[in-house]
Design a protein around this nucleic acid. Structure first.
Lengths: 226, 226
DNA sequence: GTCAACCTTCTTGTCAACAATCTGGTTGAT
DNA sequence: ATCAACCAGATTGTTGACAAGAAGGTTGAC
């Protein structure tokens, strides 16, 4: 058990560990990621760490500059907005396709999620709502059959963890987005493609609005060093 | 000069060389890429080749399966269509933004490209047209200021080289797409965002149509081995 | 003739030592 | 006090040898 994690296993493990440290706030943007340190603290070899960092760089979570090592990539509010704009474009596509292509089971599950979301908001269960939110977006993409879009969206979400974190905690946010989510669900489950696209667009337009207003009041003081 | 290409330099060089071999048809989908062979034929070290393959895998041009090596990824017509659908979503976004954000110089260059495209079609200059086409799409994205979308589009285009090749050579194709390109140019240069989005959507809808009909008659017999 | 177990060969994965480079601080001159 | 050159420590990059695993062919039993 004290064995060093080697290659393939270590690579995945280290990447996952770093992703987790990042989303839980243990790592801040701009922070250096020294290969030796990571290797030691995760009990992996340096090769494994190196490859994990390459993977994370491909996901744009980490930035590698030659001969100077890797650091956590800082995402500006402006970039977060651009990312959300792209998400909007792709999710509109998926919502549209899902409205025409979703199976009966998928439509049922959508409505089910809608009901549970309503309940979660009523109960003030923020975390539950967040999980349902994630499942909803996932299910829409799945029902659309757009494998390519799914990959693109995954890549877009990588660098956003930090922001999602900040937005979800705003008081009153779940109640606000609930209506939008229910609109998306209704449109897709009802098979109305254009309404689905419109609903998805409206939802993400609102997220962008939230991001804009968060530019003024950075709830988390971000210790970015150059 | 007979030195082996090492790391950073070799990595880029080898990746570029493979990309080129692929677009020129020297490599067919499904073909195995053996690290040693590549290293020898490009005069690079195996490490450099390995890293280059990782990069290409991130671009989804190549597929790496653990312990079995890398092979050229085969893109099905269905996937090509999905890719184009995503491109459509993102390019609509860019066209829209470009219509409102483009500088005066960019609008002028757009019109210039339009004029040259018209000329190229009149002259039957297929290759010139193809270059202009590329420059047009590039300029639209540039004018949109959507750096994130640009990266996404680059990634989408990676695996498409093979198909672009097949479609561009169809007789009458340039004349057909000319009108669509001119419509995009007019809308953006004229600052009409919704018209720009519509024009981009129409263009890519047509590309999808072309892909669909190419499913029936594969002009290039693709020697895919499992 | 067919099939399964084996064995050889080819290929990828791993590692640890070594080399090259960068960073930050120290020294000495002006 | 300021600045440049320099030096030491830290960190990344590279290499070649070795280990582990897969693919395909061969042998032998039935």
């Amino acid at each position: 058990m004290t064995d060093k994690l080697t290659g393939a296993a270590g690579r995945q493990y280290v990447a996952e560990a770093i992703r987790h440290s990042l989303s839980s706030g243990d790592l801040s943007p701009g922070q250096r990621l020294v290969e030796n340190d990571l290797a030691e603290s995760y009990g992996a070899t340096r090769s494994a760490v190196r490859e994990a960092l390459q993977d994370l760089a491909a996901e744009e979570i980490v930035e590698i500059v030659p001969r100077r090592g890797a650091r956590v990539r800082a995402v500006s509010v402006d970039e977060a907005i651009q990312i959300t704009e792209c998400r909007s474009a792709l999710e509109q596509l998926c919502a549209m396709k899902a409205a025409t292509r979703a199976s009966q089971e998928q439509r049922t599950e959508l409505r089910q999620i809608g009901a549970e979301m309503r309940q979660a908001v009523a109960d003030g269960a923020v975390h539950t709502y967040s999980i349902l939110n994630q499942r909803l977006h996932e299910l829409v993409v799945e029902a659309s059959g757009q494998e390519v879009a799914r990959r693109q969206l995954d890549r877009l979400n990588g660098p956003m963890v930090r922001f999602q974190f900040r937005l979800a905690l705003r008081p009153g946010r779940p109640a606000q987005s609930l209506q939008q989510h229910l609109a998306i669900i209704d449109a897709i489950a009802g098979g109305d493609a254009t309404a689905a696209a419109r609903a998805a667009a409206a939802h993400l337009e609102d997220v962008i609005e939230q991001l804009r207003s968060s530019a003024a009041m950075p709830s988390t003081p971000v210790p970015t060093r150059v």
